[in-house]
Design a protein around this nucleic acid. Structure first.
Lengths: 142, 142
DNA sequence: TTGCGTGCAAACGCTTTGCATATTA
DNA sequence: TAATATGCAAAGCGTTTGCACGCAA
């Protein structure tokens, strides 16, 4: 199973409906932006991009909607820094690399980081999310 | 190599000195509390614990000192939730399990989560930190 | 006595929220 | 027309900071 990106607004609305979200104009705009491609955006970045040409969505609605989307599983919340939350439009399992120089987040496909025989001994729990974060310094392709 | 806990204040001062930190009264108090055992404390929790009996360390100093300790490698910063930063007194590599019910953080020893053949293909970088976080719901030992 | 550390209080910045208005079913 | 969503502005809250004072080398 793979995730689709670059959908049109009608298709985005359908995705929201399937996730039990009333597809209002603002919610479609936000989801349409996010689901263009796999990406990591902060609330502020989303606000700027959406309202670049004219005021489309208020700050309060952005925040309310992002939280709703996370709860409903449309996007994933990334908490790597205390500064701001990033929202990941790519919800299939994968890991992240953060370049400490730029703060940019890169996806790491699961296959690139094979983990065999995972077995969390000593902890008896229902696992909801596994997330691997790697911080480092990108080597410049000079 | 293993990390020592439960040191006395003289030993704590020595550890700070070795990490290029001037061991002042307040810094020793904070480090002494943290290095009692492997634990995860927020700034607020540290403030409360230290000043329980009488005012020992101000809030500003707690925050300044925690940041200093992180920079000098005395403790490790855990950013798992946007709410607050937790400080991990256990700096040997290990992973974390977060109980979504209580917010409590549990250590997962490396051996419990064996990862063979790690190979981050596609990314050419100097790796500074690897951190695996598992969110879940603890099964009650009813 | 000079630089570093501490602490008060105010500022900061991201996020949340109360409430009135607007929109939708 | 009842329920839900939006948006403004203010509040909230963890963290940082400016600055004056204190302390130690």
């Amino acid at each position: 199973m793979q995730q689709l990106f670059g959908l049109n607004k009608r298709e985005v609305a359908e995705i929201l409906r399937r996730k039990d979200i009333n597809p209002t104009t603002q919610r479609i705009e936000i989801a349409y932006l996010l689901l263009q491609r796999p990406q990591h955006l902060s609330a502020e970045e989303i606000l700027q991009k959406l309202n670049k040409e004219y005021e489309q969505v208020s700050q309060a609605t952005i925040y309310n909607t992002l939280r709703l989307f996370v709860d409903k599983g449309v996007i994933r919340e990334l908490v790597f820094s205390p500064d701001r939350i990033y929202y990941d439009s790519h919800i299939m399992p994968h890991h992240h690399f953060i370049d400490v120089e730029t703060g940019k987040i890169y996806d790491i496909p699961l296959e690139s980081l094979p983990m065999k025989d995972i077995n969390i001994s000593g902890i008896d729990a229902e696992v909801l999310e596994v997330s691997m974060m790697i911080k480092g310094r990108l080597n410049q392709p000079s």
